[in-house]
Design a protein around this nucleic acid. Structure first.
Lengths: 337, 337
DNA sequence: TCGAGTATTGCAAACGTTTGCATAAAGATG
DNA sequence: CATCTTTATGCAAACGTTTGCAATACTCGA
């Protein structure tokens, strides 16, 4: 049986309140406890290997030092970076983190994760890379716990988020290729039904439009942001003779496209230029090094956590994106066509 | 103010005990509650958006449905896979997971993470990829909470672990190269002072010895398992003319070696063969595809969690390793020398 | 109609901590 | 010496739940 505050009190010959106040070094209104009492209590606590019972504390104080993170069941490779940002800020404030996994698709799994987290009277909830079903969003709102979505912008105004502007990402990626002389550009590997995918596609189309390039439906090959999607996409792209460049939905997709292209004896970037999205560590690792639209994942974690911790009202915001240059995009001059 | 069991009881006109038993569908000794009572209670609970207070439950039952994970401050890329295994099993048993980060080096950070976790009266602690200082190990032992180390074997017998046999990994990697005709083999990127690094190095040396190959200290270039270490290592390897193969401490290191080698106009695998360690998804992504000694990370998570959940006594074990073949190792015939 | 048996529910203590208020002791002031 | 402060500590309620035991209400056979 673990030692409690009462055990310490009994041994020290003081009351539990005294022990409690000393151990959580509360300053009473008056100046405080006798130094000898303090050191005695601390010594006994150490000797008895005393550890606080968080449940009891949280029960009586009705506050907790815990943040809840909800992750998609298949954690994307950038989630790690966001979590690092969260942990950084959390540990600075002596706050613990509990993690629950939610299916992206399965409404049931989502609800389960929400329940799990909300029952722990957490101080706030960070939702990474998911969109909630209407019912579940309602549950979240009703829970009375501050929350914020990270990395995917939410359409509804009362679901605050910190994310990249996915329209801009799509636009900037496409525009980058256009600026390098490309006009036959595919858009592959994105999960189109999703908010993120849809927005990026919109950005892609807008960039084309702004440069009087016709949109071709067969240049858009949806996927699930995965390496395998890149492979698949490249298999289809091969049948499109005029194509000179590809916007990949993620760095992973880009890697798939590049590797499959190599197998098919297409040279990157001279035969085909590729730009990725995310700007993860992967960019440096694959060959040729990937040019990519880099997102500020770490910053999302930091900002989101800070918002939740300082109890101010929570507002949506976009984190900056930038183009990270590699060697996967070549300049194309018109007469080559 | 959140709804409690008492609120429901008052509204339903029953006692809190009734509500409690119904909501956690306890079977009383006799057959049970009246169906109408049950449905009434459930309805009210739903209407009032009732959520259990875990703190209160844990306080009174003195058990928790939480598992603690301690991660190294710089989470390695395979940690994700282990965590996936943990989550899988945990969610099957309706168990939550809380995560704390510990420095590998900093004794203080380690202690902080241990305190954090142990105060939450968790059901068990999983320590990923770290070794504890003597003091901290003592603290862990004294905590009375079941624990198990994952992915790094512990020397002391009362620190149970589930990990790969790192000696075997070093041996098997080296032996694979020898079997392909190599005799001038470097060992790079491993963190030698660490248990894991030391064991793998021992395996490497044993394999050499078993084939009457002399050990050369300049063929061993330590590192920190990182991509950059691979780059650095390759810079040094270039000055060793007879070298034909490399055992990389991790897949990341291997990626670094390969990329730097390409920059230096060495062809992989004809000029230089490379074998990685870990067998992560990265192997397929880099070019040429990496041959690697694959570890069973997911299984570590699964097994460790199962052990902690079923409260049986916890025992150490090794998970299997296997060689995952890519295109980064070439056969070398003797007369080439 | 009377128990006996059973089905359904309630009572109250307990978990370990915090905290507003009360109190005792000691010192200061007149 | 009486009174007032100040300082250091204790009392007891409260947090929301579970659960052993007790109690009530019903059913049924004789």
């Amino acid at each position: 049986m673990a030692t409690t505050i009462k055990d310490i009190a009994r041994i020290a010959g003081v009351s539990p309140s005294t022990v409690s106040r000393i151990l959580s070094n509360k300053k009473t209104l008056s100046s405080g406890y006798a130094p000898e009492t303090i050191s005695k209590i601390n010594q006994i606590a150490k000797d008895l290997n005393y550890r606080k019972n968080r449940s009891a504390i949280e029960l009586v104080t009705k506050t907790s030092q815990v943040l809840g993170i909800i992750l998609p069941a298949s954690p994307t490779n950038f989630a790690q970076e966001i979590i690092a940002g969260i942990q950084k800020v959390a540990s600075l404030h002596d706050i613990d983190v509990i993690i629950a996994y939610a299916g992206e698709d399965s409404e049931l799994l989502q609800m389960q994760a929400l329940k799990t987290i909300s029952e722990r009277s957490v101080r706030g909830i960070l939702l990474l890379g998911i969109t909630l079903s209407a019912t579940n969003a309602q549950f979240l709102r009703a829970s009375d716990i501050p929350y914020i979505f990270l990395s995917v912008a939410q359409p509804e105004p009362d679901l605050p988020f910190i994310a990249s502007n996915d329209f801009d990402i799509g636009y900037q990626a496409t525009n980058y290729l256009i600026m390098h002389g490309h006009r036959e550009i595919a858009f592959v590997g994105a999960d189109i039904p999703s908010c993120v995918g849809q927005l990026r596609l919109d950005g892609y189309r807008q960039a084309l439009k702004d440069h009087q390039i016709a949109y071709r439906a067969d240049y858009v090959i949806p996927g699930n942001w995965l390496y395998e999607d890149g492979i698949q996409a490249m298999n289809m792209l091969e049948k499109l003779p005029h194509l000179t460049a590809v916007v990949a939905g993620s760095d992973l997709v880009a890697a798939g496209v590049i590797n499959r292209a190599r197998q098919l004896h297409h040279h990157i970037p001279s035969d085909l230029s590729i730009i990725g999205i995310d700007g993860t560590a992967l960019c440096d690792i694959i060959y040729p090094q990937l040019t990519s639209i880099q997102q500020s994942f770490y910053e999302m974690g930091v900002k989101g956590t800070e918002q939740l911790i300082r109890q101010a009202n929570i507002t949506s915001s976009y984190t900056p994106i930038c183009t990270k240059k590699g060697g996967s995009v070549a300049t194309r001059n018109k007469q080559n066509e």
